[in-house]
Nucleic acid binder design. Sequence first.
DNA 1: GTGAAAGCGCTAACAT
DNA 2: ATGTTAGCGCTTTCAC
Lengths: 328, 328
Amino acid sequence: MAKVTIQEVARAAGVSKGTVSRVLNARDGVNTETRTSVLDVMTQLGYVPDPGARNLARRGKHVIGLSLDGDERRGNTYYGILRDALESRFSSEGYSTRIFSGYDPAMLEAESDGVILLGVHLDDSRPNQLEARGVPFVMVGHSLEHAERAPWVDVDNISGLFEAVRHLTKLGHKSIAHLTGASTGQASRQRLEGYRKGMLEAALPVNNLLVWDGEFTEVGGYRAVRRALAAKLEFSAIAAASDEMAFGAIMALEDEGFRIPWDVSVTGFDDLPSAAAFKPALSTVRQDINTIGTRAAEMLLQNMAGKKVSSALVPVKLIVRASSGAKT
Amino acid sequence: MAKVTIQEVARAAGVSKGTVSRVLNARDGVNTETRTSVLDVMTQLGYVPDPGARNLARRGKHVIGLSLDGDERRGNTYYGILRDALESRFSSEGYSTRIFSGYDPAMLEAESDGVILLGVHLDDSRPNQLEARGVPFVMVGHSLEHAERAPWVDVDNISGLFEAVRHLTKLGHKSIAHLTGASTGQASRQRLEGYRKGMLEAALPVNNLLVWDGEFTEVGGYRAVRRALAAKLEFSAIAAASDEMAFGAIMALEDEGFRIPWDVSVTGFDDLPSAAAFKPALSTVRQDINTIGTRAAEMLLQNMAGKKVSSALVPVKLIVRASSGAKT
DNA sequence: GTGAAAGCGCTAACAT
DNA sequence: ATGTTAGCGCTTTCAC
């Protein structure tokens, strides 16, 4: 595993360091043949560019800022994974990432070359400010308000819950509850909309008493279900807006003697690693957090390079496991 | 904020780059006067060494591995903060950090210069293996089994819970329950021991029915309290082994109509950022996660430099807020 | 289109 | 004890 450098690649390919560097940076002005041959040699030798050296030669700050507004840290399995994905993509490009929690646009501008905006909400001032300052940025998550300000990557929330509800209605369920998160978040609204669309499609009424706030946490889900049970609400299925709320819901149901999925079917959203391991294994809408992170990173990289990029809606996929079953 | 380099420091101090580099790396063979004067110039100019350039010149891999066994990721506010602290300390030293989840000692050895071991448990094989391979490492958390293998940093768990219980007994509480975490973890055991010592000190009996497993999560705390209530257990205070379990406990209590702290006093452990914001503000044992991370990083750095370092027990501090009050 | 050479900020010999 | 000088791996002029 001896370190292979650009020099060796150059020699092996019979060209100069300069040329190798050019193909490495996808700069044009390189003969197509030379390019492919160099590329070949690279993979053959298992060449991996040294980020430190690149930064040094490029002379920049080379840090990208992760701006979290408030406590995205909480409830965080999701953010942990996302952060890993961003980090690994950026670091392989020679950028280090830094978390900026206390939101300070001036600092962001001074200390980073570009920024990833996490958890943008309705009346968020960050997109405007960043745009005004001309700092390249991309948002993870989106809302109509800010959609035009900068490119964003988001998961297809609406389709996700729509699919979950359709799955449930096909199973014969009619009274389907929805566990929603904080009302200020975009994701919650969109998932709620997906729920409504799903009910509509099956010509089922949307009963507001069956839309519960689970605060996007396990306990939140647990308590919401307890309240519903205490209020003697009738339902045979729950489509939750997150896996964690679904976990909480299932615990509450089981604590009260209900069996999943025989008495009540439950679906989640996210497909966290723990969803498959849960008892019963959770039926859920998978969103590939890694893809989202990688996409966002790539978009920002392009953006910083001055290229125009367009936003992306990442598709979701319904994963059916043991927590949902036919209405009995 | 123009970038100041070692060259400029050298000129301003009237010495050569070499000398500046020497003081920068705390290498000896430098006149004390020169050293202090160089140091002065550095702070005056606001000099910050460029990590990339250092790595490049030092020719090493310069990555330190964070080994998490299994899913430390979960329940994670704690690990998020810890990781930030480690990262910032290491990166200012020119090291990048990488997470190694699937534990593979060979990989760890091949790809990192040193490793931080997180969540070491009783029958953990990592300390032995790492030691056998001669990889420098330090552990965050400790157990008697591994205490001699390598330096560790840990919070004073025993004193922490001891203080919490003493606080409660001084308030007049006699029936004090303890919410504990997973029994395999060291921290849980030590906190449980602190609880026992606290009860002992006040000549109070330890009733095993009042030691509840809250799985170190909010829901876990919530459910444990519900079970206790359903079993009609008598208690006027709860000393939890984590803030999150305490949050869950308070929610369960309030959902059943109890008022905190009038009907039941509750204390936590960690002092997460959310503890002060919680309603009611949580009395808890503060452990400074940042200090722990920074200490661990510093120890590893020393260790890698071949210096002998000794383990550290970081003190804790009881923070009294609104969730605990006199027994009525 | 490609090579040669200069340098990015720093460390590590080697001198003195 | 300190200065000098090569590089580290890469990008970027500037020639050709």
